[in-house]
Amino acid sequence: MNTNHDLNRNTHPNRLVIDRLTVAYQAAADTVVPFEHFSLTVEPGELVLLHGPSGCGKTTLLSAIGGLLTPRAGTITLGGLPITGAAGKRLLRHRRDNVGIVFQAFNLVPSLTAVENVAVPMRVAGASWRAAKQRATELLTQLGLDHRLQHRPAQLSGGQQQRVAIARALVNDPPVILADEPTAHLDHSQIENVRSILRQIADAGRIVVISTHDDRLTEVADRVVRMGAGTPAVAPAAVAGEAAKDELVSA
């Protein structure tokens, strides 16, 4: 893997603060409340793992941070600016500029090449295709995919697709990276690779929040937040670099 200065380029003075967040949604006739009054603070440079059983709200929390769903109560702020309550163009700007998301299923657009998949968010942000492709090429090269630039997702292995997805999350240089089960579809060697990349991304001063069942990611985490299914969560006294990484945040 080509470790490089670009992955480590920026420092972000943005603190992510989640304060008494409650999410609820309708599923058939029932109201599902994955978590209530959940609080968490994450400092720049910190890599936080969200651990917990299925249905405990890990992915829902990522969605809320990413501005993809509106919580019932509570607030999320990034660098002091509220994410919750944002709408319209402001919400789009948040998704585009503040957050990069690595999805469990990679979610690469099958008709686009690796370079194009990575370039799309930058193009959306207003860059020319030429500039976006150049930046995408740089990122993919740094992630060891310089020989796969023009390949489509179907022509890439799971690990390669995951690296393309990571490059796409990084292309707009956002201060927050969210990863949902980033190792779910990878084999052992690929996991090692992705784990290392995610750590580098955090070391660059970004906030990295990962939802996972995979205990092997614990080694690279600064903190592990254990979430319980459907029970009120308690905010940890979040401190970056805390000695005891493992925090049980729900009863």
Binding site: G66, L68, L92, R93, R95, R96, D97, I101, F103, A105, N107, V109, P110, V120, P121, V124, A125, R168
Partner: peptide, 16 residues
């Protein structure tokens, strides 16, 4: 649908 959801998640507007 998943592609469109992903594109929305990375900041692409409905209009676009």
């Amino acid at each position: 649908s998943r592609d469109f959801a992903t594109l929305k998640a990375v900041g692409v507007s409905n209009r676009s």
